[in-house]
């Protein structure tokens, strides 16, 4: 018992208190989502009314294609996650494993580029996509494909950095052995590195997915059509009227929108935490 207290009790105590810290604001979101007046209920912990009006609105109002938004978010975030990790991991591998001139400068540049306050560059990105729109309407302004390209560009820096950190922790012995066997760099990458790195890639994909799923500053500029909006943009409609805000549907929509992320997290949980051991020496 005493050992249990020493080894495990503090763990439970710490984790439970942090869990409460996590849940506290979320609980208020839930209460607000059942509030029909449209404001945030922040003064009491006991819901004063349980109204499903906000949820009904999301699913029944033909002017609010919530399920389409949800699908769009999943598609855009999913594609960003998969593509950016695929492209990023190749670069991370090269930075970590290949010898070439300018490697150090390259990785420093990569870090520096993502430190530029990107919010100011948004105007320029907008103009670029506007110009693309004039000759290729299917990938320019207002399209998910265009937004995907911007996300991919923006995600490169972060993902390469993230992935490189983990690639460095994969022992070099393995790919050196492959090299001795006469494998080329490309073969080493596909046949040795990829299987080893799969769990890491899953983690980075998840992080990238979550980040993209919640992004709204770019998305609200680029995805204007009701049918092409993502959840983050679609829900914005309720809060930021010219002089008014309607928090109820926003809260309800946010709660539903976080469900897929929690599900993905739960299903990848094994990969995320235990899976990383695959990269250790034993692998």
């Amino acid at each position: 018992m005493i050992t249990w207290l020493r080894t495990n009790a503090w763990r439970h105590a710490l984790v439970i208190s942090v869990c409460l810290f996590s849940l506290f604001p979320l609980y208020l979101v839930v209460i607000s989502s059942f509030n029909s007046t449209g404001s945030l209920r922040l003064d009491s912990f006991i819901p004063r009314e349980i109204s499903f009006a906000n949820y009904k609105m999301l699913f029944n109002d033909p002017a609010i294609p919530y399920l389409t938004w949800m699908k769009n978010s999943l598609v855009v975030a999913g594609a960003t996650a998969i593509l950016s990790v695929t492209i990023g991991s190749a670069s991370a591998f090269a930075f970590s494993r290949l010898a070439f001139k300018g490697r150090k400068t390259g990785i420093q540049m990569l870090l520096l580029v993502q430190m530029f306050p990107a919010i100011l560059a948004i105007s320029a990105v907008y103009v670029i996509m506007e110009r693309v729109y004039t000759f290729a309407p299917s990938i320019g302004l207002g399209t998910q494909a265009g937004l995907l390209l911007i996300y991919l560009g923006g995600a490169m820096g972060v993902n390469i950095w993230l992935l490189k950190g983990f690639v460095d922790s994969i022992p070099k012995e393995l790919d050196e052995a492959a090299k001795i066997d006469g494998a080329s760099a490309v073969q080493t990458y596909w046949l040795i590195f990829m299987p080893l790195a799969a769990p890491v890639l899953a983690v980075v994909s998840l992080l990238s997915f979550i980040g993209t799923f919640n992004e709204f500053i770019l998305a609200r500029l680029f995805l204007v059509d009701m049918e092409s909006r993502t959840v983050a943009v679609g829900l914005q409609q309720f809060i930021g009227g010219q002089y008014s805000e309607n928090w109820g549907p926003f809260a309800a929509g946010s709660i539903i929108a976080s469900v897929p992320i929690v599900i993905i997290f739960l299903s990848l949980q094994k990969y995320i935490v235990n899976g990383l051991t695959a990269g250790s020496v034993k692998g």
Partner: peptide, 9 residues
């Protein structure tokens, strides 16, 4: 539960 703050927009 710990991931929840991350999952919420």
């Amino acid at each position: 539960i710990l991931i929840l703050p991350y999952a919420m927009p």
